[in-house]
Write a protein that binds this DNA or RNA. Structure first.
Lengths: 191, 191
DNA sequence: TCTACCATGTAATCTGTTACATGATTGC
DNA sequence: GCAATCATGTAACAGATTACATGGTAGA
């Protein structure tokens, strides 16, 4: 998959590994996590397969540390076009350690779960600010990239309001349980 | 991670491997993908570590094919409680081959992208129906499980309306481009 | 009998993650 | 000189995926 992300990015402009990582983090950071352990071996393989070409820049004209600049070849463009056209049709996957734990909080301490939700709210409020700022910057980067950025904002907003709703529900549940503990007759009367 | 999903599920009731896979698919199918290549080796390891115990049922009283019924042990419950309490704090990850391709559709055929969006709309409308039906069934399965089910519905609704909005935007873009091709003076006059 | 489904498992492979090593450049 | 950042890379490990092998049961 990272293979095609690299080929896609090289359609825009020639890049070296470090820059590719930056771009992937910025453009689909919430979709794909990325590290050098994937980038450099993949670049090597793409190069060996003739899908990209490479120019080594060793402190000559260009400033900065020595780097390897990669471009996409015709063969690479064809490979990429083929991939764009045929759907692997695998479903969306939302992977979140927080959600994974959340399902099971019923077996733990409920007030602890409220703390964890508060952490998440703080985190996603920060994220949302950053994303909205980026939306304005990206006005001329093409309709598809813009739409993906919109999706990021929508997802963030939806998740935040779900977190707030969940916190409210859990707090109500906690106070209901406490009332039942101190005044058991309420429950008996109601039931 | 699957390790803890298994330990969590075994809090509800004793289960065998096949049933665990079913439950994971139903409860966090859109969060985690699962296959037997993960389930059975994990069960074996959990058993070897004493976190779960096992009873073999070989065509005796119970009907059906021979199976191994697993229960969680005290040690397993402690391990699980520890995991519930401390956050790995890794960010949410939305992995979707469709979205991955979507970012790059600018390099492909725009009308093809509309077709692909239509496929996605069909798929998620179906999914939404199924999820809403399940919401009603799950009324008594505890607040956390219910909230996660709500999230699934919210995510689905958000994504659907984003898909529809995107389709509209792309169609507008296509017709704008075609107008510019046939009447280039419009663009010159506007610019 | 044949199909569909229930049930358990493994081997090979692929992908992703962590941690480390190396060194250049820029700005304080 | 030192810290931060830019830049490239690899080895070891962890996790996920695919494909296969095996066999039982239920119902058409």
């Amino acid at each position: 998959m990272i293979k095609y992300a690299i080929l896609g990015l090289l359609h825009y402009t020639d890049m070296h590994g470090y820059r590719i990582k930056e771009h992937i983090e910025q453009n689909f950071g919430n979709m794909w996590s990325i590290n050098y352990g994937q980038i450099y071996p993949n670049l090597k393989k793409l190069y060996d397969d003739g899908l990209i070409s490479m120019t080594e820049i060793t402190q000559n004209g260009e400033k900065g540390p020595p780097r390897k600049l990669y471009s996409i070849t015709e063969k690479g463009k064809n490979e990429f076009a083929g991939w764009l056209d045929n759907s692997p049709e695998k479903p969306m996957l939302l992977r979140d350690p927080f959600l994974m734990r959340f399902v099971f909080y019923g077996f733990g301490d409920m007030s602890r779960s409220v703390e964890v939700i508060d952490d998440q709210i703080k985190r996603y409020e920060k994220d949302l600010k950053r994303r909205k700022k980026n939306l304005k910057k990206r006005d001329n980067s093409g309709i598809y990239v813009q739409l993906i950025a919109d999706l990021g904002v929508n997802l963030n907003e939806m998740f935040l309001s779900w977190l707030k709703h969940s916190k409210k529900e859990i707090l109500e549940n906690i106070s209901k349980n406490e009332q039942e503990k101190t005044n058991p007759e309420i429950r008996r009367a109601a039931g």
